[in-house]
C-alpha cells in the first residue's frame, strides 16, 4: 500500500491532465445533479430584483471580454431572464470595447429565447435598450448620475435616445433601481466609487472567480447589495431563476452555467484527490526515509 501511494504521488503531469479532461467530459454525456444552493451574496442579488416592482428600471453594464465569456455571459443571461419575466426594464451599456457586441448578443439571444419558449415579445425600446460603448469610464459613470442623454445621446445602432419610449422618463440614477456591473476587469471599483459613493445608487457586481475576493469587503460594508462570483455564482443564479420559472409552471431555459459547473465540480474533486494522494505519498516517503 505504501509503495502504491508513493507511486501515485509521482504520477506524470500528462496523466493528471488526461484524467482531468476525461472527468470534465462526464457531465456533458451524463446528467448529474449537484446541489448548487445559492450563497447569500448571489441570493441577495436575486432577492433584490425579485422585490422590485414591475416596470422598474435596472442598468446593466457589460464590462467583460471574450476571454471570460464562459463565466460572465451566463450571469448576464440569467439576470436578463429574471428581469424580463418580472417586467423589469433593462438599460444595457458597455464600458469595455470588447463587451460592446457581447452584451448586445446576450440581450438579443434572451429576447429570442423568450419568443421561442413562451411566445413573449421582449421589445427593443420598450422592454430594453442597448446604448453601446463609452470610453472614459469614470466620466461616463459620473455623467450617468447627471443626465444619461449627455453620455449616450444615441443608442448602439445610432438611434436618437429621445425616440426610445422606454427612455422617456429616465434621466439619471434617480430613475434607476439597481446598477449591475458584469465585469472581468477592475471597473467595479469605479462603479463603487463614482456611482455608489457619489450618487448612492444600489449596486451589484457579477464578476469572474479570480476577482470575486476583491469585492467581498464592499459586500460586508453594505456598499454593494450582492455579488455573483464566477461560474459557481452564475450556476447559483441560473438555479434560482429556473426555480422561479418552475414555480410559475414555465418550461426551463438551457442550463449552460449549471452544466459547465458540474464539469468544474468534478475537476475540483479530482484536484482535491490528487492533492491528498500527493501529500500522503510525500509523508509516507519521508517517514520511510
Amino acid at each position: 500500500m505504501r509503495e502504491l501511494f508513493i507511486k501515485l504521488s509521482k504520477m506524470k503531469r500528462s496523466t493528471i491532465f488526461l484524467i482531468l479532461i476525461v472527468g470534465m467530459l462526464i457531465p456533458f454525456f451524463v446528467t448529474l445533479k449537484f446541489p448548487y444552493t445559492a450563497s447569500p451574496p448571489t441570493k441577495a442579488v436575486f432577492d433584490y430584483i425579485e422585490n422590485l416592482p414591475e416596470g422598474s428600471v435596472i442598468l446593466v453594464s457589460v464590462d467583460y471580454g471574450p476571454s471570460t465569456l464562459p463565466e460572465t455571459e451566463p450571469m448576464l443571461e440569467a439576470i436578463l431572464k429574471h428581469a424580463f419575466i418580472k417586467n423589469i426594464r433593462v438599460i444595457g451599456i458597455a464600458l469595455t470595447e470588447e463587451g460592446t457586441n457581447l452584451g448586445l448578443r446576450a440581450f438579443e439571444n434572451v429576447a429570442k429565447e423568450f419568443k421561442a419558449l413562451y411566445n413573449i415579445d421582449i421589445r427593443y425600446g420598450a422592454d430594453y435598450v442597448y446604448l453601446g460603448f463609452k470610453s472614459g469610464s469614470e466620466a461616463a459613470i459620473l455623467g450617468l448620475g447627471e443626465d444619461i442623454r449627455k453620455v449616450f445621446p444615441k443608442d448602439y445602432s445610432g438611434r436618437d435616445i429621445e425616440d426610445l419610449p422606454m427612455m422617456f422618463n429616465i434621466k439619471n440614477y434617480n430613475d434607476i433601481s439597481l446598477v449591475i456591473t458584469i465585469s472581468s476587469t477592475m471597473l467595479p471599483q469605479q462603479w463603487i466609487i463614482y456611482a455608489q459613493g457619489r450618487y448612492g445608487v444600489p449596486l451589484a457586481i457579477g464578476t469572474t472567480a479570480v476577482l470575486a475576493t476583491d469585492w467581498y469587503p464592499y459586500l460586508q460594508s453594505g456598499q454593494i447589495i450582492g455579488l455573483i462570483g464566477g461560474l459557481k455564482g452564475a450556476a447559483e443564479y441560473e438555479n434560482l431563476v429556473n426555480w422561479k420559472f418552475k414555480m410559475e409552471g414555465r418550461s426551463l431555459f438551457g442550463m449552460k452555467a449549471i452544466r459547465n459547473m458540474n464539469a468544474v465540480t468534478i475537476a475540483e474533486l479530482l484536484i482535491i484527490l490528487f492533492i491528498l494522494l500527493g501529500n500522503i505519498g510525500y509523508f509516507l516517503e519521508k517517514k520511510g526515509g
Binding site: 456533458f28 470575486a212 459547465n260 464539469a263 475540483e268
Partner: peptide
C-alpha cells in the same frame, strides 16, 4: 487559499467553455 481556490475554478471554467 480562498483566492487560489477561486483562481483554479476560474481557469477550469474557461477550459470548460472551450470544450463546450
Amino acid at each position: 487559499g480562498a483566492s487560489f481556490g477561486y483562481t483554479v475554478m476560474a481557469r477550469l471554467a474557461l477550459l470548460i467553455g472551450r470544450i463546450s
